[in-house]
Computed example of a mutant assay.
Amino acid sequence: MPQTMIPKKELVQEARTVAAALAQYSTMVVVGIGGSSQGLRAITSALGARKKTIIICDDLDPIAFQMATQHVDWKTTCINVVSKSGGTLEIMALASVVVDFLKKAVGEDWIHHVAVTTDPQVGFLRQWAKQHDLKTCQIPANVGGRFSIFTAVGLLPLCWAGYDIDALLLGAQSALADAAPKKWAEQQVEWDRSGRSIAVVMPYSSHLSDYARWFVQLWAESLGKSEVGQTPLVAIGTADQHAQLQMFAEGAKNKCIRFIIVKSWLQDIVVPESINPETSYLSGKSFGQLLTTAAETTAQALEQVDCPSYTIALPELNETALGHLMMCDIIMTLAAAKLYGVNPFGQPGVELGKKLWRQRIEA
C-alpha cells in the first residue's frame, strides 16, 4: 500500500540523527544505483544545490567517475553507501574505490566519515557496518528500491544538505488523499490497450529531467511483466519540440503524452525589448510564461493529430510539490499494476543479466 512508503517517525528521526552526526563535513558522496540514487538525483536536480554538496556516484563510466570526484577533499567529505541488498556489483565497485580514497586521506579515521543505508537486518552492508561500528540507517524490508525515496535513502542526504524533509513528507502524505493518480492509471492502461504502448513523460523544465528518468524506472520495472506494460520515454520541453515532436505528431500512432508544467517560478526571467522587431511580442513575457504556453499549445497541436495527452501542473518547484508528485506517481503505478494484473514489486527480468555478468567477471 502507498502509505507504507512513508516512514514511521522513528525512522525519520534516525535519518536526522545520522545527518547531524555527519554535519561537520561539507561534501557527501552518495554511492548507489537505480532506486538507491534516482529519486535523490530527481529532487536535488529539481531544487538545486543547498548549503552543502551532494555528489552521486552511480556510474561505472571511468571518465564520469573521475569528473565527479576529482576535486573532492576527502578530509572534509563523508560517504553514504546505499544498497538494500548490499551486494549490487556496481555499488560494491564504486564503494570500494571511494572508501580507498578516504582511507588514503584520513587513515583509520575513515570509519567516522562513512554511513550505510541498507536492510535493517541482513546483507553484507549491515554486517560491514557492524564490524566497523559505522553509522547506519535502515531501508524498511517492505519497501523496494524504486519506491524508497521517502525512506532514509532520500531523507538522510536531503536532511544533511539542508533540504526540507518535513515538507517533502507532507507533500507525499497529501497525495494519499488525491484521486487523480488512479484516474491517470486508468487512462494510461486504457491508452496502452488501444495501441498506445509508448508513454512519454514530458516536463517543461530541464530541472525535471532527472525526475523523468526516475519515473521511467518506476513505470518500467514495476509494470514491464507478463508481456504487458507501456514503454516509458523521456522528452523535455521545449528542447524536444525540436527533436521528438515530429515523431509524436506524424510517426506511428503508438504514443501518449504526459505533460508536466510549473505554474510559478521562484526566479523567473522577463524578456526585455526584443532584438528582433519581428518578435516584439516576446517583450515583457517571462520564460515561465513561454514554457507553459508552449506546453499548452503543443498538447493542443497533438490533439488535432489524434495523439492523446494530459497535463500535470505543479504549483512551483519545492519539496512539497515534488513529494506530492512522486507519491502520486507511486500510487498511479501501483494502481496500473492492479489493472494489468502484475506484481509491481521485484524485477525478475533483470536477474539473469546480473547473474551472467557476475559469472563472466568471476571467470
Rank of each mutant, 00 (worst) to 15 (best):
V262C: 11
T88D: 10
N276K: 11
T53V: 00
G323Q: 05
T320L: 07
I79S: 03
D61F: 07
A179T: 08
A252D: 13
Q66R: 13
V31H: 09
K135P: 04
F215E: 05
P277R: 10
D210P: 06
G353H: 02
S26F: 07
L282Q: 10
V342G: 11
V12N: 10
W214D: 06
H242P: 05
L60K: 03
G349P: 15
Q246H: 07
V143S: 04
K130W: 00
A172C: 05
F124G: 02
V122A: 10
K263V: 01
V200G: 02
L60Y: 07
D166C: 03
V228D: 12
E190C: 08
I361M: 14
K52S: 03
A20W: 02
T69M: 09
L325F: 14
F124E: 06
A129N: 09
L22G: 15
Y211W: 08
I91G: 02
L156R: 11
R196Q: 05
T27H: 09
L325A: 07
K263T: 06
A252Q: 09
V81E: 09
F101Y: 15
L94Y: 04
A167V: 14
I361K: 01
H242D: 05
V122L: 09
E351F: 12
L176I: 07
K355M: 12
E14C: 00
V82S: 09
L169K: 15
D133W: 01
E278P: 04
I331P: 13
V143K: 08
E303Y: 07
V72S: 06
A177T: 10
E108Q: 15
I236E: 10
C78N: 02
Q347F: 02
Q13L: 14
D58M: 10
I56E: 11
C78T: 04
A336I: 00
K9D: 14
S226I: 02
V30R: 07
E186C: 11
G87Y: 09
G251K: 14
M247H: 03
P232W: 04
K338R: 02
S85W: 00
F124P: 04
A141V: 02
A336S: 14
S85G: 12
L94R: 03
S226T: 03
T151Y: 06
E186W: 07
G195H: 12
D119C: 01
